[in-house]
Design a protein around this nucleic acid. Structure first.
Lengths: 207, 207
DNA sequence: CGTGGAACTGTATCAAATTTCAGTCCCGGT
DNA sequence: ACCGGGACTGAAATTTGATACAGTTCCACG
């Protein structure tokens, strides 16, 4: 079960406090930070986070909030790594082939979850309603465990595109986030693969 | 000043609990573990450890025991490019005031032009057509030389907002990039200032 | 011998923190 | 139109936890 936006904010806050103070926050501290007026607001969110498996709550324990490590996610020093930026993908080459590297981008991989492995320069406005514009860098996580509804980098024959993945039953669809583009269904037998999962966006210029 | 044998045992116990539970122990838990019969036994040891600089005690705070990293070569790695992340801006405070710092973000400042000075967590969807969504981090350059048509962080009284700046002749307008919001004109005499220029966007999660 | 520090016991008190109950409000889906 | 979930308000009960004060025991040291 996914977290709501608000729940994610609460979880982020818990992580920040843990990093800053070395202690999980109390309900009252959550209340203060978010401007709630009742400790129960915090309590409900924590309960929801616990129900969804994002944290463990120790009953009757002051500050008994223990975030659950989602995957490997060991926290070392924050490494700002240089990710390869992939622009045009030459037909017939693996996406990470050297000839596709166009640039490099220094980002904090740990700031994203799951951690990105490369950045893909998005061409076209087919994902405009997801807030992904032409020229944006989509940060991509490679091991492609993608669920329905997530934004993925997909390969169809020689074409590499960014789309929203939809699974229903046995079928797979690739949805654009722009009414001017049509959803395309992936038929079995077509040369199709999911190359990665979108985990973040970096836009280097505004206009 | 060196620690006594007993004090070292207490310190070790604190470390083990932190690793095992993710939380520092309470006085009562120390008492239980060592078989004391009075919470004051634990309290005295903690006070001694604090006096010797081995831990920091947060007064009046449940589990407020924070071991002090003696030296540990961890933090050496990065630096250089951590921008403060500003979330909710408390009314009446300068935007970069410490109480507004919510997090930090490691980015390559040089990748943006002009270089960003901080990141502002965008609230609301008023800039959705500019590809800036709720929760996005807007990278902001402080010296606010903004031309018409650029995206700026503006302050109107106590409110801090992200809008597109329009100058025409002597007039100044702040345009939302969302038809559901209306453009607002800045009248001379209103408490208005441009706090910075948007130079980039970082989105840390997709949904 | 006596003094002082370390290591406790025992008792209290009060603030910090958890937890529960009873609601309201809004929104999206059936 | 109704329902349920998410996101809260408000009040209150109860437990947890920190901390202060007054002692005791033991041992090392001058």
């Amino acid at each position: 079960m996914r977290l709501t936006r608000r729940q994610q904010e609460i979880l982020d806050f818990i992580h920040r406090r843990l990093k800053r103070d070395g202690l999980p926050p109390t309900r009252a501290e959550i209340v203060e930070h978010f401007g709630f007026r009742s400790p129960n607001a915090a309590q409900c969110h924590l309960q929801a986070l616990a129900d969804r498996g994002a944290i463990r709550l120790l009953a009757g324990t002051a500050r008994g909030i223990v975030p659950i490590e989602s995957s490997s996610a060991e926290q070392v020093a924050v490494q700002a790594m240089r990710l390869p930026v992939i622009g045009r993908v030459t037909a017939g080459t693996p996406i990470l082939a050297v000839e596709n590297h166009e640039d490099e981008l220094a980002v904090d991989r740990e700031a994203f979850s799951p951690n990105p492995d490369y950045a893909l320069k998005v061409q076209g406005d087919s994902m405009i309603n997801a807030g992904i514009l032409d020229g944006d860098l989509l940060l991509v996580h490679r091991p492609p465990q993608a669920r329905s509804g997530q934004i993925v980098v997909a390969r169809l024959g020689d074409e590499v595109t960014v789309k929203r993945l939809r699974r229903r039953g046995r079928g797979i669809w690739l949805e654009a986030e722009n009414p001017r583009y049509k959803t395309l269904q992936v038929n079995a037998g077509s040369e199709f693969s999911i190359e990665g999962l979108g985990v973040g966006v970096v836009r280097k210029r505004m206009d």
